[in-house]
């Protein structure tokens, strides 16, 4: 926990990594950790070992919780959004109570947070942030991206949201109201982006494939056709 890449045995890889050749796109050094563990790495290890030693936790419980976290990815949120786009009744229930709406689809809230789903419209654009730390709708989106946790985004999203959005390539016209939601305690947010034009005949599954993590944070719209990467 807390460290990655300490497994230097590449034999188990299930894909051709193509080190140093064109197959991988960019040659790089073998990944390993050379630095001594930092203060917080050591503290985490010490606390974890103490909890296990005192039988307050088992190693299995820690592993299980990591599996819980690993099972939460933006693909879940995308399914919620796609369902809301195709099912008007579900959309209403989701906006009424985000957590209950997600629970309807089998998404559990292991951290006992509430969820408010914020609907983008032609008149309102929602953006989410946590200025105090990194509160994020993990049950539906998984772990937040690094930029979401860093101070520049956290400070600027509430001070100059339009400039931040422009840096993501999103220009919001002045007659569209921007609502920034700052997560602070027991409530998390998920942005319900606008369904892009031209998708009227698409299946729920195909719609879900259009919805990205950043669109559910509110920094970009959902686009169709998707822009070439």
């Amino acid at each position: 926990m807390g460290t990655v890449g300490d497994d230097n045995d590449h034999d188990g890889h299930d894909h051709d990594h193509g080190h140093g050749d064109a197959g991988h796109g960019h040659p790089h050094e073998e990944i390993f950790i050379a630095d001594a563990p930092g203060y917080y790495d050591l503290m985490e290890t010490a606390v974890r070992e103490l909890l296990i030693e005192r039988r307050l936790f088992g190693a299995d419980e820690i592993r299980r919780q990591i599996e819980v976290l690993d099972s939460r990815t933006p693909a879940l949120g995308a399914k919620v959004v796609a369902r809301a786009w195709v099912d008007e009744g579900f959309r209403r229930r989701l906006l009424e109570d985000g957590r209950k709406g997600c629970e309807e689809l089998g998404i559990t809230f292991y951290d006992d947070t509430q969820l408010i789903v914020l609907e983008n419209t032609p008149k309102v654009h929602n953006l989410i942030v946590c200025t105090l730390c990194s509160c994020y709708p993990r049950p539906v989106l998984g772990l937040p991206p690094d930029w979401y946790k860093l101070k520049p985004y956290r400070a600027r999203a509430v001070y100059e949201p339009r400039a931040v959005l422009e840096e993501f390539g999103t220009r919001i016209p002045d007659d569209v109201e921007i609502i920034v939601s700052d997560s602070t305690a027991m409530v998390r947010y998920l942005v319900l982006p606008m369904r892009p034009p031209g998708t009227e005949t698409m299946s729920e599954e195909d719609l879900g494939a259009l919805v990205t993590r950043d669109a559910m944070i509110g920094v970009i719209p959902v686009e169709y056709p998707k822009e070439a990467a």
């Binding site: 509430v158 339009r162 109201e177 921007i178 609502i179 939601s181 997560s183 305690a185 027991m186």
Partner: peptide
């Protein structure tokens, strides 16, 4: 947002939401 930041440059309709105990 204009009430939070006196020098806020965006439209007056931009605003913030937060949950408070």
């Amino acid at each position: 947002l204009k009430q939070i930041w006196t020098d806020y440059r965006g439209p007056a309709s931009d605003s913030l939401r937060v949950e408070v105990f």
